[in-house]
Each structure stands twice: as C-alpha cells, then as structure tokens.
Amino acid sequence: MSEQVLPFYLVCDESWSMEGPDGVDAINGCLPDLHREIGSNPVVADKTRFCIISFNHEAQVLLPLADLSELTTMPAMSANGGTEYGTVFNLLRSTIEQDVARLKQDGHQVLRPAVFFLSDGQPNDSADWHVAYQRVIDPSWSARPNILAFAFNEADEGIIKQIATVRAFSYNGTLKPAQALQEFAQSLIRSIVRSGTSGGADGGMTLAMPDTVPGFTTIPADVV
C-alpha cells in the first residue's frame, strides 16, 4: 500500500563548541517534544518521516529516517571534535538518495525532502566543502532537498546564506543561547506540522517555512 511521504532531515553541528546547556543539551531537551507533538498529531504522524544527522569533523546518521509515531526512543547528540561541512554534505546526499530510493521501492509517493541545517562554527575544510554541497543542491538531481540553514554563535552568516536554498537564520543575541536553540527546535516542529497539514500554493503538500524565528534574524538565501 502506497503512502505519501514528506521526509525531514535535522542536520546538526555537534562539534566541541556545541557542548553543554547552551549547545546540544538544549536541542536534546527538545527532541522528546518533537517526538510527542508529531506522534500525537494524526495528520502529520501519518505522512512525515524524520532523520537526524549529526556532524563534527565526521558525520553520522544518528536517527535513520523514521516514522516518529513508531519510535519509542530518540538518540541524543554529544559534543566534541572539530567542524567540517564536506563530510556531512556527502553523507546527506547519499542518505537522501538511499531513503528516497527505498521509499520509492516500497511504492510510496515521495515529496521533496526538507533539511534543517544548524551550525555554530566555521568549517575547517573551507576550501573543500563546496564540492560536496553542490552535489546536494544539484538541479539535475530530482530529490534535491529544500534547505533552511541556521547560524548559531560563531557561525559565519555569509556561509549559512550560501547553504540555505530557501531561507537562512542568524542568531542575534536577543535570546539566551539555550532559548534560541529551543526556538530553533520549535520552528522545526511547526514546520513539520504545517507542512504535513497545509496545502502548498500549488495545491499539494509542500514545505511550510517559518518567516521568523525568535532569537534569529531572517536573511534571504543566496539564489542557487
């Protein structure tokens, strides 16, 4: 039996600078909320899938693309290591490719995936990551995702703008770091809920994006 599926990817920096209550702890604290809110909403639970990819100088799929209403536990992030973008974009491309292929093989109708990307630092591989990133947004790749990118603390606003394909957000200090990260998680929850439920401008399910996120300044994405 076929289903309509909207896959979400949380791609989150867990380098050492994200350590503690003003870092990964704040996001870890919000993941159960995400789990609960999505799981209890029948409209969203039935058609969204959620994946967590975390990265420092390495990248790993922390939570393989899952139906949140079928999960009983959520993995937590843990900070250490440096920050590299090339590895995580390579992993993101291959993960989406495999997920979409598997969903299609199971007979599902797949909507364009959505990526929420958050980083708090400058990539150490500044010369190399663009190549991996270009493969993620390759216009000839039909499953290329919509990307919302969030710059936190020391992250370079200019780089985050390059990464976002639809909208970027930059931490502006108006909220404490932990609160801002909670707002980031809330914006992810709201986007999932509204994307699963509201028709897009063209009549189908599409990504519902936040216009503003408290604690962050909205910046238009660079046109790609």
């Binding site: 309509q4 979409v100 299609k104 109708q109 797949v110 909507l111 364009r112 790749w141 039909s142 499953a143 897009g200 063209d202 009549g203 189908g204 399910m205 599409t206």
Partner: peptide, 13 residues
C-alpha cells in the same frame, strides 16, 4: 510519471 520519482504536486487550475 515524473523522472526520479519526487511527487509533483503542481497543478493547472
């Protein structure tokens, strides 16, 4: 059917 299999939700109206 759309190539690559991403569901196209756009419609004429």
């Amino acid at each position: 059917s759309s190539e690559g299999g991403i569901l196209d939700t756009a419609t004429d109206a």
